[in-house]
Amino acid sequence: MMLSRSLVVATGLSLISFAALADPLIIEQAQVRAVPPGSPASAAFMTLHNPGEREVVLVTANSSAAETLELHNHEDVDGVMQMRKVAQITVPAGESVELAPGGLHLMLIGLTDPLVEGEPVEIELGFESGESQRLEAPVQQIVVEEQGQHGHAHAHDHKHDHAH
């Protein structure tokens, strides 16, 4: 009887330690922007979800598809949107951070080979904790919706809803 109880305890402990080794983030909708052959750079977008109880701080990214990967953000500098390198991207505990066109993203600089639409690009993320996490992001055409058109359509729909 004693042996089976200690076996259950040992099994329980190994499950706990395995959970601690799980990837720090859940990564969804990862994609790399398709660019014309010969382009020197591209960008990667994704949603980073932190299921844990501590914030996760992304500090580096690497890929064999590019000489350098940098964490970037678009910032309004005197009314002009400029792309700026950032030192880190923090994903608060239990929250998500979206890397998307016009905001935070990963910049692939010095592409080593042409990006082929539909082919995966392997990216390794490095965290402040010393952990790393690999992901595959397919190369896709990324169309950014025009804000003005979307807003106009919404206003038009709004009038329709209330017409009597």
Rank of each mutant, 00 (worst) to 15 (best):
G118M: 07
V80F: 09
A93K: 05
A153M: 13
V9F: 14
L99H: 04
L15F: 11
H74L: 13
I109Q: 05
Q147G: 04
V77S: 08
V143R: 02
M107K: 12
S4R: 12
P138K: 02
G38L: 14
H105Q: 07
A153D: 15
G52W: 08
M46I: 09
N62A: 13
I142T: 06
V32A: 02
H72C: 07
V32Y: 02
V59G: 00
A137F: 05
M107P: 02
M46S: 07
P114T: 07
H154A: 15
V35F: 00
S4D: 14
T90F: 00
E28L: 09
G102R: 05
L7G: 04
I142H: 03
Q147P: 03
I142W: 02
S63I: 01
M46A: 15
P51R: 06
A41S: 14
A44G: 06
G12F: 13
A155Q: 13
E98R: 05
G118H: 04
A44C: 13
I109T: 10
L48W: 05
A43G: 08
N50D: 10
M81C: 07
G12K: 12
S63V: 03
Q141N: 14
E98A: 12
V121H: 02
E119N: 09
D157I: 06
E70W: 07
Q149L: 11
V77G: 03
S4I: 15
T68Y: 00
A163M: 06
V97S: 03
V143S: 05
A22T: 13
Q141V: 13
Q149Y: 13
F45G: 03
A30V: 07
A44D: 10
G148H: 14
P101L: 10
V144T: 12
A155C: 05
E67N: 10
S39Q: 14
A61P: 02
N73R: 12
I16W: 14
P24W: 08
E53W: 07
V97M: 09
A34C: 05
N50F: 11
I109N: 04
H105E: 00
I123Y: 05
E75F: 15
A65C: 10
